[in-house]
Amino acid sequence: MITLEFFAGLKDYFPAVMSLEEIPNDIGSLRRYLRGQKPLASALLEQCRFAVDDTFIDEDYRPHHGDIVLVIPPSSGG
């Protein structure tokens, strides 16, 4: 199982925290899964970065059991 955390505009489509029993092969697969779940969020998900342990991860990162994966929309601080 992995845990996903969503932020900002993504919370209009997903809960703030969500568990996934089936671990995706990589971040690309996770992105496709999420797009399939919420097609209206596709454009935003395409722009998102992902992070584990407070570090951005690449598209080919393979999530591990217990990972907390942050789904990070484009930054808009300041």
Binding site: F7, A8, G9, D12, A51, L70, I72, P73, P74, S75, S76, G77, G78
Partner: peptide, 24 residues
């Protein structure tokens, strides 16, 4: 900070609408 740090703004307008992620 504006472009890379995971921080987000939501603009709330007087007419009651809101919008995430206003661009600088």
């Amino acid at each position: 900070i504006k472009h890379h740090v995971p921080l987000w703004k939501c603009e709330h307008f007087v007419d009651g609408e809101r919008a995430w992620g206003g661009h600088c």
